[in-house]
Write a protein that binds this DNA or RNA. Sequence first.
DNA 1: GAAAGAATGTAATCCAGCCGACAAAATAAA
DNA 2: TTTATTTTGTCGGCTGGATTACATTCTTTC
Lengths: 217, 217
Amino acid sequence: MFEIDEEELEYLNQIASEIKYPKGQIIFSTSQKANEVYYIKSGLVKIYRTTSDGRQVSVALRYPGDFIGLAEVLSNISEREYSAEAMDNVAIQIIWKDGFKKMMAEMPIFSEKIVRLMSDRLREAQNTIYDFIMNPIQGRLAIFLLAMAERSGDKGADGIIRVHLRVTQEELACVIGSARQTISSLLNLFKEDGSIQYEGREIVGVNPNKLKTWIQE
Amino acid sequence: MFEIDEEELEYLNQIASEIKYPKGQIIFSTSQKANEVYYIKSGLVKIYRTTSDGRQVSVALRYPGDFIGLAEVLSNISEREYSAEAMDNVAIQIIWKDGFKKMMAEMPIFSEKIVRLMSDRLREAQNTIYDFIMNPIQGRLAIFLLAMAERSGDKGADGIIRVHLRVTQEELACVIGSARQTISSLLNLFKEDGSIQYEGREIVGVNPNKLKTWIQE
DNA sequence: GAAAGAATGTAATCCAGCCGACAAAATAAA
DNA sequence: TTTATTTTGTCGGCTGGATTACATTCTTTC
């Protein structure tokens, strides 16, 4: 989604410091001070909020090459509104707010890309809202699996996307706003139908055309 | 949400042309060419998409002082993804894409504000997603009424927000993703409970504290 | 290896809220 | 005014999907 170039990467390396987070680690969490942004070098990050009754509600996933923690910094909000958690082993660069803003000021093309990034994310979020209103659960699950596959998989000649997705049903439930048991039976439906292929507990193949038949509209 | 200053307004007046749309008029619609952005001078605008079975799904409302049609232009998408409709009589300035981009390039502070605007909208959209997952219908309705009141009403000394909202239940249903009949009974509940006050078919008062009791978390 | 813990499968129950159907108001048009 | 149109109120029936409750299987840890 965000295409960083050589020059920018070099600039980043100057002002950022790299940190690794093991799977499950919290990167930042709600109501912490928002003084920095993060650039994902590898791994998958979940953006979520914990409700008063302890459930997690996820509003987005971020992939390698993405920035996270941007919205609070760009909106000049002092505290994090959401939390971020490493869903894999994750390597991240931390950039302090001031450094990041300086970078934006000094590199207009970079700044333009950030504008485009925020705009892309807004469209993505609006599409999510639309999908939530339009689609029953199976549709949302299909949409989500499709999006994940397209971002992190390789499309084979047969049209099937090869992936390596290890996500628990619990995680899926909190991303699409459903119950674990419901996800369980839907995934089995998708499997029987050939929409997705498993190897043990890992999803290894996604058939976009079949998956799409579960989606409304 | 977007605070435009004198200088910017003047610049806008130079490059924009004003158009008025009567209530109900379409300003732009899905899959039209996205060659311009709009600045709302007065009135309320609904951003929505029409589904294949004819229903409307609304993803945001925009108020005076807001830009609309921004996301496609900033993301460099050639076609509109959503439609926009005047919910009141609306006065709007049209700015052509090139002119707008030139303006951003020439006025760095304006450009910064646009970044902040997109960032604010992203946070808003993420909060909407969160609310959809967390709240049952009455919560979403309460959240929406509250947001509308805070944006377009005046807060009295008693804490009650005075507004003039003429929205049909049908409109409300499509904004929060529900059925008209459900909205009907909920509004009556809210009315009995003192959360909202009617005058004929217009909502004229909103009691934020009472409304909040309907919201989860 | 065994035991503990985590992740899945399945089934029965229950309820929010959608849908259809229609009556009653309110507004607009004639 | 009368008539047509739009908007609202109300009420059962129906159902998707949450919830509860276990059983099973896979993964770690010891």
